[in-house]
């Protein structure tokens, strides 16, 4: 409980004594590039495979002859857009980007780099953490889109290669009864998770105390806490936005 209060105070400091927009602009760009380079390969790999495996498994479960084949890709699409791309990938994101953010700030803390900023009269939370959060909120939705596309591509390829369902059927299923709101919903989730992972990981890293060992512990805690927050937020958002009004 105390921890949560401290977290919100930490968020409050993001916006006090701000540095100029110009300073932040280049920091945010750097951070975006770092996030992208850090995670794009893993995202493409994981989501393509998940897409492919979901297709095979859905096909395996839908053996009844009276179910048309395109239902397979329709199911894969729903899974991908609603849960796989935004939520499951958020867990991957926390493991990759969150732990690196936390490690980065933790190292700056224990080597007194944060103290050095503070003693110059610079609000280190604003200077170091705000760019990370903004970059994460911008980049994670993009990564979600990429991973959604990759997952559907993975399904398409595996369907074609194994002959589970023909490309035309697959495409038909992907478009069948498509509700645009699911995309909006996925992006709302992405923005939320991008914010949660960056802010929680930064928080954990920023308040590291001790030495190199503690930096590692902070990173692990950053991932665990981020994942819990993601799952809670996932449930809340589903309740809020998907429950029939």
């Amino acid at each position: 409980m105390k921890e949560i209060g401290k977290y919100f105070i930490f968020l409050g400091y993001l916006f006090t004594n701000r540095e100029s927009f110009k300073t932040h602009y280049s920091l945010i760009l750097d951070e975006c590039v770092r996030i992208g380079v850090n995670s794009i390969f893993l995202f493409v790999l994981v989501s393509t495979f998940i897409g492919a495996v979901s297709t095979v498994q859905t096909a395996f479960n839908l053996v009844a002859p009276y179910i048309p084949k395109y239902v397979i890709s329709q199911v894969v699409r729903e899974m991908t857009v609603l849960e796989l791309a935004p939520t499951v990938m958020a867990i991957v994101y926390a493991g990759k980007v969150g732990s690196s953010m936390s490690g980065n700030l933790g190292t700056m803390r224990i080597t007194e780099q944060i103290d050095a900023l503070e003693v110059m009269g610079i609000n280190s939370i604003n200077y170091l953490v705000l760019p990370k959060i903004v970059a994460s909120v911008l980049m994670y939705p993009l990564l979600v889109i990429v991973s959604g596309v990759c997952a559907l591509m993975g399904g398409y390829l595996v369907g074609m290669i194994t002959g589970i369902l023909a490309p035309t059927e697959y495409i038909y299923g992907v478009r069948y009864l498509f509700n645009e709101f699911t995309i909006t919903f996925a992006l709302i989730k992405a923005v939320t998770f991008g914010f949660l992972v960056a802010s929680i990981s930064s928080y954990k890293g920023y308040y590291t105390e001790g030495g190199a060992l503690e930096v590692g512990i902070s990173s692990t805690k950053a991932v665990t806490t981020s994942v819990i927050a993601i799952l809670l937020a996932d449930y809340l958002l589903a309740q809020l936005l998907l429950s029939p009004a």
Binding site: T16, N17, Q113, E118, V119, M120, G121, N123
Partner: peptide, 23 residues
């Protein structure tokens, strides 16, 4: 207050024991 502290801190130069260089 916070601003008063920042004002004074901007007049400070500090060398840390470990250097504290931005790596």
């Amino acid at each position: 207050n916070r601003n008063g502290k920042i004002e004074i801190r901007r007049e400070i130069g500090m060398l840390f024991q470990g250097g504290a260089l931005f790596d």
